[in-house]
Simulated assay, not measured.
Amino acid sequence: MAQTWRSRPTDPDARRTRPLDPAGLERIALRYVERYATTRAKLAGYLGRKLRERGWSGEGTAEVDALVSRFAELGYVDDAAFASARAAGLTRRGYGLRRVSATLKAAGIDADDAAPAEAATREQAWEAALVFARRRKIGPFAPAVPDRAAREKAFAALLRAGHDVAVARRIVQCGPGDVPEMDLG
């Protein structure tokens, strides 16, 4: 039996979207920033994609950069707060400075806005490495003394997670149950 509630509309133009005008562009931008924590670059990319998909019916060209700047002035978009929150979340999950920096750069956050978040991540690097090691059962959290291949694999995992070489080496060299202190000299 056919389900009528899932049938397609009879009007073929009913699913087509109209091109955006200035009010429509602002409306979808507001909807985006109310639903997602975002950056200036992500908002500009989203609006650019919507303009490519739907087209522009306003006069001249769409002022995406002006709209994004206005939203930043109003506090709807805050790159520094986004960087701080994203860095704190990644650090709590056990990721290191290199991984956090790469994530912030991919989100389009400039160096000035990312600097405080990276400094906080740098201060918590040792704790983050231990969280990662505990989660992956590496070094002091391993169930048994690993062989050379397992240590190399664990070392590589710590490096991919963005941790410093000295931190990764220190954690991998620990035996099960021997949680080292932070002294990295």
Rank of each mutant, 00 (worst) to 15 (best):
A120C: 08
R135M: 08
R169W: 07
G48T: 09
L20E: 06
A102Q: 14
A2H: 14
R170T: 12
V68T: 05
A166F: 04
A142E: 05
K105M: 13
T91L: 07
T103H: 12
E152P: 00
A23L: 09
P146Y: 02
G185C: 00
R8M: 14
L184K: 00
L130Q: 03
E63A: 15
Y95E: 02
A142F: 05
G175Q: 11
P140K: 03
A142C: 06
R170Q: 12
R135K: 10
L20K: 01
R15E: 15
G24D: 02
V77K: 03
G175S: 11
F132C: 02
A87W: 01
A161H: 00
P180A: 06
K42N: 11
V179K: 02
Y95D: 00
A66I: 04
E73M: 08
A66V: 12
R135I: 05
W56C: 05
T121P: 01
V172C: 02
P22Q: 01
D147H: 05
L30D: 14
L47W: 00
S57E: 14
D110F: 00
R170A: 11
P22W: 04
G89K: 10
A156F: 06
G55H: 07
A115L: 05
P19G: 06
A149V: 13
A133W: 00
P176K: 03
D11F: 08
L90G: 04
A87L: 02
H163A: 02
D13S: 13
A119F: 09
K105F: 10
R122S: 07
S101W: 09
T91K: 04
P22M: 07
G175C: 01
R160I: 00
E123K: 11
L25E: 04
P9V: 13
A80F: 08
A161Q: 03
L74C: 09
V131T: 13
L74R: 15
A150L: 11
R99Y: 13
T61I: 09
E123P: 00
L159D: 04
R99E: 09
A23R: 10
P146H: 09
Y32P: 09
A37T: 10
R135E: 08
P12D: 03
R93C: 04
G96F: 02
M182D: 12
A144T: 14
G24F: 04
P180T: 06
K153Q: 15
R92C: 03
T10V: 15
A157C: 07
L74T: 11
T103Y: 08
R136W: 01
A154D: 11
L67P: 00
R31K: 13
R6E: 15
T38K: 06
I138R: 01
F71E: 03
R16A: 11
G24E: 06
L43V: 10
T10R: 14
